[in-house]
Design a protein around this nucleic acid. Structure first.
Lengths: 194, 194
DNA sequence: ACGATTATACCGACCAGTCGGTATAAGTGG
DNA sequence: CCACTTATACCGACTGGTCGGTATAATCGT
């Protein structure tokens, strides 16, 4: 992949998480990526195309991060689910724009005005949740859990808690609230399987 | 209060929830409120001031809505907490921009670039959660719950779930995911007090 | 009449997207 | 080996239009 293209995608991840989509200008992105404006429109048809590409790029990076995470090696699928939640919590370091989620930021802003970006965000969230759902389903079977709720709905619920935790962190200007909320999620999943 | 001012605040609630803050132009707001541009800057110093006012206006409306809700009359504080969650779930009707939260949308977009709006959003969320926290604390006392988690953290957790549920609804284009997530929250609170 | 409010025209900064062009390297035919 | 074409990456001045905000005059309620 061309170097300029990747630099623009990384710049998009940084700037959109900090300022949002509409407030991130093409000039800003080029400056951050140290790339000329002409290059931008060489690599992407328009600003929207960059956002879609950035969402997919982010999604792939996140998948790789989780595939490589230690919790992934645990035998018991329930341990993997709890390990996932722990991992998400452990990641909340540094400043808010550094740990918050590009997808949530993007989709909240453009879900109505920009179908292409919305679709990319939906795909990202769903594919991410699908991996989790698989382990939840395995854990249910292994631990003999029979319940009204489904593995799919619990997987999506974890995403809701995480996205909501980011919003609280943004409102309060720190990660502590997010951590506390993820602790509640961890406790909930633990209880469901006990 | 001047009629034009209120119309602008209502317009802000509608448009910002649909398009986000940056993509809602002053001209859009004036058109939606059926008010001239001059009136806008008569009532508000600038666009930012409108956003702050809209956040406070929204907050007051939400407080009034909950104060008037039937669940508020229940004797057992735990029933009020569960009633609150039920109420939030029951409200998820119609199109996404109609039931999603102005505060979450706003703060996610401007938490870094606009301290005044961020502060207004933080105040709104915290004051809303504080009311809930009181009933949670009462419920803990009444039902003899002694736990590691605090009433405050559980109150904030409910807000996280709700905000996250809105994001999922926006990504998927429907309320169903949000409903399922709130069901999980309800179950969690129920279990905590059993 | 007089302050509060509304209407309209306008301004300057900014922004997405265009356009004409350079640089480099890899084929391709003779 | 070499002229020629093709493809890709990159550059930055420029443009047409948008947006937040201002100026000023008209209108309304009391």
């Amino acid at each position: 992949m061309a170097v300029g293209r990747q630099r623009l995608l990384e710049a998009a991840i940084r700037l959109i998480r900090e300022r949002g989509y509409a407030s991130t200008t093409v000039d800003d992105l080029c400056a951050e990526a140290e790339v000329a404006k002409g290059s931008f429109f060489h690599h992407f048809e328009d600003k929207e195309a960059l956002a879609v590409a950035a969402a997919n790029y982010w999604s792939a990076k996140a998948d790789a991060l989780h595939a490589a995470a230690p919790y992934h090696k645990l035998r018991d699928p329930l341990d993997r689910v709890l390990g996932y939640i722990d991992f998400r919590k452990a990641i909340l370091k540094g400043d808010v724009p550094e740990f918050s989620c590009l997808i949530g930021t993007l989709v909240q802003e453009v879900y109505r005005s920009n179908p292409a970006i919305r679709a990319a965000c939906e795909a990202s969230i769903c594919s991410h949740a699908a991996v989790l759902e698989l382990d939840i389903a395995r854990a249910m079977k292994l631990h003999g859990v029979r319940a009204k709720w489904t593995a799919a709905s619990l997987a999506m619920h974890t995403q809701a808690v995480l996205q909501g935790a980011f919003i609280l962190a943004k409102a309060e200007g720190g990660a502590e609230v997010a951590v506390a909320s993820i602790d509640h999620l961890y406790r909930y999943v633990e209880i469901l399987f006990r």
